[in-house]
Computed example of a mutant assay.
Amino acid sequence: MTDASHSPAAADPAVAKVHWDQSQMRTEFANVINVVSTREEFSLLFGINSTWSLAEGKGFEVKLSNRIVLTPFAAKRLHALLSERIAEYEAKNGALNIAP
């Protein structure tokens, strides 16, 4: 869900408002993401790691569920939006430390 205060229309009434139609939206969970890119597109691959034990020596089992394909410009906008939201989250909840 989007907060109206983050909308360009909230700051400038001359900017057209965006109506977010959620009638066909699905929600899916992913705990794994990978990104593959070419000159023309970025593909975001989402899936679920269902590995219970690495002791069996089989490696990770990731079941991919969704692929989102973006233009490089849309990928850059996504990067900017995610950076802003993560900074807001960390300001409220503390730093998110992830392993390299």
Rank of each mutant, 00 (worst) to 15 (best):
A95W: 01
I48A: 11
A16H: 12
S53F: 01
R39T: 14
T38I: 02
T71Q: 04
A55N: 09
K63C: 06
R77E: 08
Q24L: 11
S65P: 02
N31F: 07
H19N: 12
K63F: 13
M25V: 15
E90R: 01
S37G: 06
W20G: 02
R39I: 05
W52T: 13
F73S: 12
I86T: 04
L82Y: 02
G47F: 07
N49I: 08
N97W: 10
T2G: 11
V36L: 10
L70E: 04
V69Y: 04
F60R: 14
A87V: 00
A95H: 04
I86C: 02
K63I: 15
T2Y: 09
Q24Y: 10
S43P: 01
A16S: 11
P100A: 15
I48E: 15
A11P: 00
F29S: 08
H79C: 12
A80L: 05
H6E: 09
A95T: 14
M25R: 14
A10I: 01
W20P: 05
P8D: 03
F46H: 11
A75P: 12
A75R: 08
R67C: 13
L96R: 10
H79W: 09
I48Y: 06
W52K: 13
K76I: 01
W52V: 10
D12V: 02
E88Y: 01
T38E: 02
Y89H: 07
A9S: 12
A95M: 10
R26G: 14
L64E: 09
R26A: 10
N31E: 03
L64Q: 11
A75Y: 09
G94V: 03
E88I: 01
N31H: 07
A10N: 05
D12S: 09
A87W: 00
S7C: 11
K17W: 07
R77C: 09
E90S: 00
K63R: 15
A11T: 11
E90Q: 00
I68A: 13
S23K: 01
E41V: 09
T2P: 07
A95G: 05
M25H: 07
N66P: 04
V36W: 11
L96H: 03
V32K: 11
E56S: 13
A99P: 07
L96W: 04
A4P: 14
V69N: 07
V69K: 14
G59D: 00
R77L: 14
K76F: 02
L64D: 05
A75M: 10
K76A: 11
D21W: 01
R26E: 08
S37W: 10
I33M: 12
M25P: 00
E40Q: 13
A14I: 03
A30I: 06
R26S: 14
V35E: 04
A16R: 13
S83M: 06
G57C: 04
A11Y: 07
S83C: 06
S83I: 02
E56F: 09
